[in-house]
Amino acid sequence: MFEARITQGSVLKKLVEALKELVTEGNFDVSNTGLSLQAMDSSHVCLVSLTLREDGFDHFRCDRNMAMGIHFGNLSKILKCAGNEDTITLKAEDNADQLTLMFEAPSQDRISDFDLKLMSIESEHLGIPDQDYSAEVKLPSSEYQRIVRDLTSIGDTVLISATKEGIKFSTSGDVGTANITLRHNTTPEKPEEQTFIDLKEPVALTFALRYLNNFSKATPLAPQVKLSLTKDLPIVVEYQVGELGSVRFYLAPKIDD
């Protein structure tokens, strides 16, 4: 038996909206430590890693480990039927072929349940080692969203370079070129409006803007986003989802032929 209840159901709605265009399907792996997902896009260029801790839920029970194969487009259709203020409960029997989603309005006068058909998915798990990065940058998630959106209108790829001067995003295309530099800035009173640059050594990497832009669909989940960069390795774009966990996007760099 698996059962997970979250009062702030809108978080689940936002999570699925953030993932569904990148990965069409994947396994929700549930265990007594929580719920996780690792899924690559169809071209194996980027990977989504979601970790939701058991203690971040209002109630969590998982008697045995299960992999529930989810089609995110279908899950999104069902979650769109939940109100933003609803409490959401996920339920599945052991070895079930469906996941039940129950939505409860705050006033308790409307309760609905939907069954999502589960899929059998052979998932490829990648072993991602914990490592130190050359540069870690925390910035407002809205700023990240604005940068990648603006640059996507100019070019297809972005060169991200982190130096002691700051972090610079550069692109070029038919209309011309663009450079946006952010400096370390802890002046704003609100921590979520600050930019922190932790630089161990300068690094510069090139990425496809289309994916970086797609990751910014997670903006409603967190006020800040962390970018982690190391030479010749994928970038990690990480959103902390309150006390519940995190969603991380890994994107392989483009490397000179």
Binding site: L47, L126, G127, A208, P234, A252, P253, K254, I255, D257
Partner: peptide, 14 residues
């Protein structure tokens, strides 16, 4: 022109 790498180039399959 830079070439797009595959994630599997970086991380081993478990």
């Amino acid at each position: 022109t830079p070439v797009q790498n595959d994630l599997k180039e970086f991380y081993a399959l478990l």
